[in-house]
């Protein structure tokens, strides 16, 4: 348990230090370069805001109206058998379809159940280990104008499913 915490806590500082040491070794003006990159980040955030606003409205309404609880109630008999917390199901369903919508749901879940609860950790792990599959396939296939994508969607969704199931299992094992 302590080793896990240690690895998780050390990863980010180590990466930062490696990058900076490389920069100094190659005689780069690390701080100036940092400032330039950070400034470019502002644009990314500003472009993100309208999407988040729209998604938070839609997801917030789903929860406040009781629709989300209703869906969870319907699916919970199945998830109980599989020992998957039913609260994460809306996330699992939206994750491959929309990055921002699933982020909205993830924030909602963590607000309600706590970031450090098992449900909060499963939510975080799913968000970190899976991608917006449909979107990725769409932009990659559109750029070369292919029509037959063969088995790609099946394989990608299998990977997502594996990622989600292992997120649940790992978080339950590690707590």
């Amino acid at each position: 348990m302590q080793i896990i915490n240690f690895i998780s806590a050390t990863a980010i500082p180590m990466i930062i230090i490696i990058i900076i040491i490389y920069g100094i070794k190659e005689k780069k003006k690390v701080f100036d370069i940092f400032l330039k990159g950070a400034k470019d980040g502002i644009e990314i955030v500003i472009n993100l805001f309208p999407t988040l606003l729209g998604i938070f409205l839609a997801v917030g309404l789903l929860r406040a109206s009781g629709v989300l609880d209703f869906i969870i109630k319907i699916i919970s008999p199945i998830t109980n058998i599989l020992k998957i917390p039913s609260q994460i199901l809306p996330l699992a369903m939206l994750r491959p379809i929309s990055g921002s919508a699933s982020m909205g749901v993830a924030v909602d879940i963590m607000k309600q159940y706590g970031t450090d609860s098992i449900i909060g950790k499963i939510t975080s792990t799913i968000m970190g280990s899976t991608e917006t599959t449909f979107y990725t396939i769409a932009i990659y296939t559109a750029c070369i104008k292919v029509k037959k994508i063969r088995f790609v969607l099946v394989a990608a969704l299998l990977a997502d499913l594996a990622g989600m199931i292992s997120s649940v299992v790992i978080c339950q094992l590690m707590s």
Partner: peptide
């Protein structure tokens, strides 16, 4: 502990990618 999910994410990612 905001970063205390990194190892979990690594394991889940590797499993997902391997299955893919």
């Amino acid at each position: 502990e905001p970063s205390n999910i990194i190892l979990q994410v690594w394991i889940a990612t590797v499993i997902a990618a391997t299955v893919g």
